[in-house]
């Protein structure tokens, strides 16, 4: 849906001067929004503060001190003990799932988007419509047959069992976004290469691939985050500790740790670190990736 809108701001931004230029009307205070922003800031900050501060607290301190006090003697024990509980394994699994899904999606979506943009035939057009329709199918509605298919393919309890359906349900949005990206490539460029006698494969390698990089990055990040956070497919399609991904691991810690809230919060902090790294080093890409998919 609405993806057309999603790419519009990004598209337009090229023709608009950077925000810092010129006098801005937003230089004046804006009280109602300021108040709303401040209140919401508190609402966001308190749980985040709680998570971080509690992760560094010992279990004893958590019980003795108030939940929002600063820890008097911060400790890293919670984090080190997580690694004994198989956290590294969960992290690796999640990374495999995220990267595997992204690779698979990009590998099939970009050629498809290329065909959709450059092949005017009716059959290709109707394929595109199938993907558009696919945007509306909620993944959990088909979880029973997916589960049936995965068990019959003997993929149950493998990371591939998570990757395949996750990738399939990311395809519609990936294709829609990549199609928009490829439409932005001026037709003359295609024509010029065609006149030189380039095959579609050559056009794809020389023109489509390099010029669609921003779109690929955005789609990659969006799809990767979705796979990283996915819960339902891992829940239903895997079982063993060896195949467990982070979100399931967190859920499991909740019952394993019981009252050890500090241990649980340390797990939450660690699970956010890879995305935090992405945020710090590629803030623009991350945000554009999020906007590309326009949410789940």
């Amino acid at each position: 849906m609405s993806l057309d809108l999603a790419r519009r701001p990004a598209h337009r931004s090229r023709s608009v001067p950077p925000p810092s230029a010129g006098p801005r009307r937003r230089g004046r205070p804006n009280f109602p929004a300021g108040i709303a922003a401040t209140v919401w800031l508190l609402i966001v900050a308190v749980p985040v503060y709680f998570v971080v501060i509690t992760g560094f607290r010992s279990q004893d301190q958590y019980i003795e001190q108030g939940p929002l006090d600063l820890p008097t003697s911060p400790t890293l024990d919670n984090f080190t003990s997580l690694f004994d509980l198989g956290f590294t394994r969960f992290l690796t699994n999640s990374l495999v799932v995220a990267f595997g899904t992204v690779a698979l999606v990009l590998a099939v979506a970009l050629p498809a988007a290329y065909a959709i943009v450059r092949n005017p035939s009716r059959s290709v057009r109707s394929m595109f419509n199938v993907f558009l329709l696919g945007l509306a199918v909620p993944a959990q509605a088909v979880i029973v047959p997916i589960y049936l298919i995965i068990t019959r393919l003997q993929l149950y309890d493998t990371l591939l069992a998570i990757i395949l359906p996750t990738a399939a349900f990311s395809l519609p949005i990936a294709i829609v976004v990549l199609t928009s990206t490829l439409r932005d490539i001026p037709g003359e460029l295609y024509e010029a290469m065609t006149v030189d006698g380039a095959t579609p494969a050559r056009v794809f390698g020389r023109l489509v691939l390099p010029l669609s990089r921003p779109g690929l990055v955005s789609v990659g990040i969006f799809v990767g985050l979705g796979a990283w956070n996915g819960f339902l497919f891992p829940l239903v399609l895997t079982q063993s500790q060896d195949q467990r991904v982070l979100p399931l691991g967190l859920w499991n810690f909740q019952s394993q740790y019981g009252t050890n809230v500090p241990g649980l919060m340390a797990a939450v902090v660690l699970s956010a670190l890879p995305v935090l790294a992405l945020y710090l080093f590629g803030r623009r890409h991350l945000l554009s990736g999020l906007a590309a998919g326009f949410g789940k």
Partner: peptide, 22 residues
């Protein structure tokens, strides 16, 4: 020189298997 339908085939087949068939 235009890409044939084959370029879209992997995506379509894959989506058919895990998105439409279900």
């Amino acid at each position: 020189a235009r890409p044939g339908i084959i370029w879209a085939a992997p995506a379509v087949l894959f989506f058919a298997a895990f998105g439409i068939l279900p």
